[in-house]
Structure formats: structure tokens, C-alpha cells
């Protein structure tokens, strides 16, 4: 029995050492997002609390904790409370399989990328549950919009992942990174990278695809009835999801923890730092796009997902497969 406790303790400290930096970096990333947004619009952004305003998010979180949680009288209480918890949990749980370097990974599973895809496709439940349980018009409309949006963009993300997997020949995230030792997939699969990035924007409900919470049309979408810590949990979960998508993008296309060039001064930088730098780079793009692109209309969004991205990524899939087959570069043996 003692052994189990030892194993449990061992795993628990690993989980704590993954989750605490994760949550801190979510707080920092919220600050970065607001800061970039401000700078693009020639404002200063949050710069009062702490050095450069770094503690702004923590101050906000404290404020949210001390606010009263209001549950509408006509809401379905269990589902209403469950929704933010689901969002937050799913966003954090997915980080279990992300390899920060060749050694540092919590769970090195065979089907890592499928796990990531599954967890990110479950993310829609938090939103639907919140929207439905609120029993109010705007949250419900927001939930319906987001359900349709996330399901449709998932399809193209799936096909993009297949594109990468064809070149790797394994579903393990470590193998996917190690296969890019010579050439990052962003170069041969550049169109797929662009589509992945845009689909990730839509999947995380970021501007220009933030229709579920379009404030001009739907007040705040599915979050309208939420207050206090429950709202903050939605908000943190959303940012954790965005970070997750950035991590996914850097693993699939930007070579994970691998340095740009494997030459002397560059490869002295430790592997986790490379991973963090790549995630930050992708996040910076996310933040810039939020600041400079106007919101899409709903029919434009659907058209983009189904009529442009889906056929294009399918055609690219066929092209990749035939290229690999013709030049006999398929991984895992020749056919």
C-alpha cells in the first residue's frame, strides 16, 4: 500500500509543478494580451499594478474572488455551476501530454495528438452548458453559435493534424517533434500552418471569430449571466485554451523544443526555453490579430470554415500523401 502512496506522491508533485507555472503563465499571458492590444491602439494598456502592470491579472482575480456569485433564479443550478468548472478543467487537463523538452513531459502516451484533439473538441461543452443553463436569450444564442463554430472548425483542424501525421508516422507528440529535427513542418506545410492558425482562432473563440460573445450583438454571449469567480474561471479557461492551441501549433509545425539551428551558440539555449519562446511567438500573433482584424459575420465564418478551409486542407492532404508516396518518403517502411 505504501508503494501506491509513493507513486501517488510522485505524480502529485509533478502535476503541481506543471499546473502552478501553467496558471501563473495564464495570468501573465492575459496581461501580455491586454498590453499588446493597448500598444497597437496607441494606448498604454495595464501599467499601474506592479512593475509594467504585471500584477494586473492577479489584482483582477482577487477582485473576482471577493465578488458575489449570482445564480439566476430560473437557471439550472447544477449545470450552471458545472459549466465554468468543465471549461477550466478541460483546459488544464490537456497540458498533461504537452512535452516541454525531451525529458519533461507528464504523460508520454502513444496517442498524444489524439488526446489533445479530443480534449480540445470537448471544450465546446463548457460553453453549451453555460449558455443553456443560464436560461436566458443571449447566452443561449451565444452557445448555439459557438457549438456550430467549434464543431465546424474542428473538422479542418483534424485534417491538418492528419497532414502532419502522414509525414511523421506516429501519434506520439515526442515523435512528432523529433521528426522535425531536419526541417520544421512549417516550411513544407506552410499553407496548413496558416489554416491551423486561423482555425485555432476560431476554435478558441478569439477575435476575429469571437461571435459567441460578440458584445455588440449578444451582450457577452454565454458569459452574460456569470459573475464573480465563475466568470473568472471561464476567462482563465479560455486563455489556458489559447495557450494550449499555441503549444499545439508549435509542436505540430514549429518543431517544439528544437532550436532553430543546431549550431553552437544557438543550441546552448535550453530546450524548455525554446518551447516557451515558440508558444509566446504564436501568442503574440494571436494578440496582434485580436487588435487589428475586425470581427467576421456569422455566414462569412461558416463559409470560410466549410467552403474554403475544408476543401483546401483535403486537397493538400491528397497532395502530401501522393508526394510522400511517389518519392518513397512514407515513414514506417516502404510500400
Amino acid at each position: 500500500m505504501l508503494e501506491y502512496f509513493q507513486i501517488l506522491g510522485n505524480e502529485l508533485y509533478k502535476i503541481v509543478f506543471l499546473l502552478v507555472p501553467m496558471l501563473v503563465s495564464v495570468a501573465m499571458i492575459v496581461w501580455l494580451d491586454r498590453r499588446v492590444w493597448g500598444l497597437v491602439q496607441k494606448r498604454k494598456g495595464p501599467n499601474v499594478v506592479g512593475p509594467f502592470g504585471l500584477f494586473q491579472t492577479i489584482a483582477d482575480a482577487l477582485k473576482y474572488i471577493f465578488k458575489e456569485i449570482i445564480i439566476p433564479a430560473s437557471a439550472n443550478k447544477v449545470v450552471f455551476i458545472l459549466a465554468p468548472i468543465v471549461t477550466m478543467t478541460l483546459a488544464l487537463v490537456a497540458w498533461a501530454v504537452i512535452p516541454i523538452s525531451e525529458q519533461i513531459v507528464l504523460a508520454d502516451i502513444n496517442v498524444g495528438i489524439l488526446y489533445l484533439f479530443a480534449i480540445s473538441s470537448l471544450g465546446v461543452y463548457g460553453i453549451i452548458m453555460g449558455g443553456w443553463a443560464s436560461n436566458s436569450k443571449y447566452p443561449f444564442l451565444g452557445a448555439i453559435r459557438s457549438a456550430a463554430q467549434m464543431v465546424s472548425y474542428e473538422v479542418s483542424i483534424g485534417i491538418i493534424i492528419i497532414n502532419v501525421l502522414l509525414c511523421v508516422g506516429s501519434l506520439n507528440l515526442k515523435d512528432i517533434v523529433l521528426a522535425q529535427k531536419d526541417l520544421w513542418y512549417v516550411i513544407p506545410l506552410f499553407p496548413m500552418f496558416v489554416i491551423f492558425f486561423i482555425s485555432a482562432l476560431a476554435e478558441t473563440n478569439r477575435p476575429p471569430f469571437d461571435l459567441p460573445e460578440a458584445e455588440a450583438e449578444l451582450v457577452a454571449g454565454y458569459q452574460t449571466e456569470y459573475s464573480g469567480m465563475m466568470y473568472a474561471m471561464f476567462w482563465l479557461g479560455e486563455y489556458a485554451n489559447i495557450l494550449l492551441m499555441c503549444a499545439m501549433g508549435s509542436i505540430l509545425f514549429l518543431g517544439g523544443w528544437l532550436p532553430i539551428l543546431d549550431v553552437y551558440p544557438i543550441n546552448l539555449i535550453p530546450a524548455p526555453l525554446w518551447m516557451i519562446l515558440k508558444i509566446l511567438f504564436l501568442f503574440l500573433l494571436f494578440a496582434l490579430i485580436k487588435a487589428i482584424v475586425p470581427r467576421y459575420r456569422y455566414d462569412q465564418l461558416m463559409r470560410l470554415g466549410w467552403k474554403i478551409f475544408l476543401p483546401f486542407s483535403l486537397i493538400y492532404l491528397v497532395l502530401t500523401a501522393s508526394f510522400l508516396f511517389y518519392f518513397n518518403k512514407l515513414p514506417n517502411g516502404n510500400f
Binding site: 496517442v111 489524439l114 484533439f117 479530443a118 473538441s121 470537448l122 465546446v124 483534424g158
Partner: peptide, 9 residues
């Protein structure tokens, strides 16, 4: 994982 993706997701 496929059950999670297809059925649940």
C-alpha cells in the same frame, strides 16, 4: 480516443 473525439466531441 476516437470514441471521445467522434461521439463526445
Amino acid at each position: 480516443m476516437i470514441i471521445l473525439i467522434v461521439y463526445v466531441g
